[in-house]
Structures are given as C-alpha cells and as structure tokens.
C-alpha cells in the first residue's frame, strides 16, 4: 500500500486512491471539530456559527471579545483559579505515591502483585459516574464532600493509574545492576534513588505526571459530585455553560485548552523519545 506498483490495473488504481480518500475523510472527521472551534472563538457576534462577515474574511467579523470576557469575567477567573489550585496538588500526590509504588511493584519478589496492581489500576477501569457516586456517598459520610481536599484526593486517586502505568513501563527497561553498583560504591538507598534511579526514570515520571495533571484538569464528573460551588473548576464552568448555552466564551476557553493540549502532547512525545534514547532503544 505504501506506493502503487507500475503494473497496477485500473481497478487497483481506483481502489488505491479511493481508499486514501476514505482515510482522508476519517482524519477530517477526527480533526475538523477541533479545528472548527478555533475561528469560531474569534466571532464578533454572540453566535455559535460562522457569520457572513467571517466567511468574507472581513476583519469586522472577527474580534477578541470572547477572550476578553474569559479574562475579565469573575466566574471564569474563579474557575480558572480553582483548576490551577486543584490540579497541581492532585498531580503531586499521585506522582509521589505512584512513583514509590511503581518502584515497589517492579521489584523481583512482590507478594500479591496481581491483586495489588488490579486495585491500583481500578480508578481507571471503574466508570467515572460510579467513582463519582461512591465518592459522593463516602466523602459526605466523612465530611470531605464539598471541600477542597475532597476534590484533590479524588482527583489524585483518578490520576494514580496513569502514573503507575507509565512509570512501570519505564522501569521495565531499567538495569538493576546500576543500583547495585551505586550501593557498592557506598551510596545509601535514598542517595541511590535520587542520583541514579530517578534521573533515569524521570521521563516516565514526568509523562505520568502530565497524564495525571490532564486527568485532573479535564475532570468534570467527579468534581460535579464531590465538589461544591466553591470548587467550581474550568471544565465544570464549561459544562454548566454548555447546558445553559450562555455565551461563546466557551469556545475561547476551548481554544485555549486545545493550545494547552498541543503543548502537553509535544512534551510527552519529546519525553518518550528521550526515555527510549536513554534506554538505548531507537526513537520510534
């Protein structure tokens, strides 16, 4: 399929090109919805659709007013502040607990490895609505429902599987003789961890952390139930906005979030290549 041989029949040629067109349409389906909202977020009108001025590429049809609204509206600003206050703390919790446990799990002799792994991966497996329901019930019992720490703890729990998976994957290629060599040279376990093991698995830890961060930053179901109005995050504000159709400010926020995801995607990709290079694999 990579290229068409010169002896291909007309039928093969038709199929070859129509297959490419089909795939192109599917790629279009994947990417178009995300691309479409970017110009719409610069709409000068309060519509969710292209105005004739916009189609005529008239500068009058475009404006930054929805971005202005996002940066001045107290509701959106509060939501942004909440998101920024919650996601990093949740990430820190999942990364520190998760990395330790991943190192523990990658040791040779771990009793009950499978059930432990299953428990740690479970927040990713259980549908969010069920996690949200359970956390709502349980956290209201112990007084965490509607508090900042309730949301942070629940988000940390949701982020942990990602940290575990990425860090264990990095540790698979980890050469144990390095830690032994370090111990041999007189380093204590803590020093060995920070000076030898950590730098090598750092790419995995960071990309796990990014996954955990984006999980918390994007999360809306659990925060809807576990949080109260005081913990309204950006996705929550978007969710209410979409429900009540208030303003195209949502599209401006969406565009900003797309930019953030592109930045994160690039970081993760660079880290992945770096980690494979460190471990002596070809960058793929």
């Amino acid at each position: 399929m990579s290229s068409l041989p010169p002896y291909a029949t007309t039928g093969q040629r038709v199929w070859y090109y129509s297959f490419r067109v089909i795939c192109g349409v599917i790629f279009f389906f994947l990417i178009a919805p995300i691309v479409v909202i970017i110009p719409l977020s610069f709409n000068a009108e309060d519509f969710f659709t292209f105005t004739p001025e916009m189609l005529a590429l008239d500068p009058e049809g475009y404006s930054l007013k929805h971005y202005e609204d996002f940066f001045t509206n107290p509701d959106w600003q509060q939501a942004l502040r909440n998101s920024v206050a919650i996601a990093p703390v949740a990430t820190l919790l999942s990364v520190s607990f998760g990395t330790l446990a991943a190192i523990g799990l990658s040791q040779k002799h771990v009793p009950f490895r499978r059930p432990i792994m299953a428990i740690m991966i479970s927040p990713m497996i259980v549908p969010l609505i069920i996690s949200a329901a359970g956390m709502y019930f349980f956290y209201s019992r112990i007084g965490l429902q509607g508090t900042y720490w309730g949301v942070v703890l629940s988000h940390a729990a949701l982020g942990i599987p990602f940290v575990i998976i990425t860090v264990t994957a990095t540790l698979v290629g980890f050469d144990e003789s390095l830690t032994r060599a370090s111990a041999n040279l007189g380093a204590n376990p803590v020093r060995t961890f920070f000076k030898v093991q950590m730098p090598l698995i750092l790419p995995g830890v960071i990309s796990g952390g990014l996954f955990a961060f984006i999980t918390s930053f994007d999360e809306v179901v659990v925060v809807l139930f576990v949080g109260s109005a005081g913990q309204k995050t950006l996705p929550w504000q978007m969710f209410t906005g979409l429900r009540e159709q208030i303003s195209p400010t949502i599209l401006a926020v969406a565009t900003i979030l797309v930019a953030i995801s592109i930045a994160l995607l690039t970081t993760v990709e660079i880290l992945r290549r770096r980690s494979e290079k460190i471990r002596g694999m070809s960058p793929g």
Partner: peptide, 19 residues
C-alpha cells in the same frame, strides 16, 4: 517492596475503594 507500595495502597483504599 511492600513498604514502598503500602502508602499508595492505603491511599487508594481510603480514597477510592472505600467509596
């Protein structure tokens, strides 16, 4: 190994499995 795993296991048990 268990000592390394324990903090997270307890954390998950309280914040997720208990709910």
């Amino acid at each position: 190994a268990l000592a390394l795993i324990a903090p997270l296991l307890i954390f998950i048990l309280v914040t997720f499995i208990a709910p």
